[in-house]
């Protein structure tokens, strides 16, 4: 039994390492400073992914700013007050939303934001990402809060703490590293999304700092490069992929570091 599970673990790790190594090998040759800061140019003239990196960062940031508080708030509600029909409904809808293919979220935002504004925009892209993020954050937050032992809450209640204070300064800190891990996973997840951005943020050839304009993203840029006809474009797709994977890895490491258990 131990042998078998160990083999499975080795298999999983091996695949991961092969993928990472392959991306690294294929991508590393095309990476240079110019590639990192330039905007895309016609094939053969170089060009880079600077604006795509910025766009991804901006949209992920805005999506996190919208999605994280709502997701955490909803998760706290579900765990602390959600044992009723309303909580069950929210829980069921969240689980459904987590299972919905992300392109459908893209179509939804396209319909309610892009069409009325008659323009694709960074805001629409960020909103799609936030919608994907909220149920993931809500459910992991709920799980983490439920893991906080009842005895710890009772200890605080017995000192005369009102319910909201127990939640705020005992339960939430106790669950903080778990909640942060969930948040980190959801950020990593949305920074790898392509489908919901295709209709919403579209793409842009330029550096764009404004959310009411179409915005470039790493994932859509990779998609464009990878589906182009020229070998040089494929190489740039690999390079951009390497950057994306590197960034996601970086987020993971940073949050790991930040949430290292203090107590």
């Amino acid at each position: 039994m131990t042998m078998l599970t160990a083999l499975c673990a080795i298999f999983a790790i091996t695949i991961l390492v092969i993928i990472l190594a392959y991306i690294a090998v294929r991508g590393v040759s095309a990476i240079n400073i110019e590639f990192l800061i330039d905007t895309p140019k016609p094939v053969g003239e170089g060009g880079g992914i600077g604006n795509a990196i910025l766009g991804s960062a901006l949209m992920t940031l805005l999506a996190t700013a919208i999605g994280l508080p709502i997701g955490i708030g909803a998760g706290v509600y579900l765990a602390e007050f959600g044992d009723n029909w309303f909580g069950n409904t929210v829980r069921f809808l969240s689980d459904t939303l987590i299972g919905v293919p992300s392109i459908i979220v893209g179509i939804f935002v396209y319909t309610i934001v892009v069409l009325p504004m008659s323009r694709q925009s960074g805001f629409a892209g960020a909103l799609s990402l936030a919608i994907i993020m909220i149920p993931i954050v809500a459910r992991t937050t709920e799980e983490m809060i439920r893991l906080v032992p009842k005895s710890m809450r009772e200890g605080a209640l017995a000192l005369g703490a009102p319910q909201w204070r127990v939640t705020w300064n005992i339960v939430m800190p106790a669950a903080a590293s778990g909640i942060a891990t969930g948040a980190m996973l959801s950020i990593a997840r949305i920074s790898g999304e392509t489908a919901p951005l295709l209709f919403t943020a579209l793409n842009s050839r330029f550096y764009n700092y404004f959310f009411d304009q179409p915005m470039a993203s790493l994932t859509v840029q990779i998609y464009n490069y990878a589906t182009g006809p020229f070998e040089i474009e494929h190489q740039m797709a690999w390079a951009a992929t390497l950057i994306l994977v590197g960034l996601i890895l970086f987020i993971n490491i940073v949050v790991r570091f930040l949430t290292k258990k203090k107590y």
Binding site: S151, M152, E154, A174, Y263
Partner: peptide, 14 residues
């Protein structure tokens, strides 16, 4: 009316 529980339950604090 203070209470001390069967299993000690310190908070995750200092």
């Amino acid at each position: 009316v203070g209470m001390v529980f069967q299993k000690s339950n310190p908070f995750p604090k200092s």
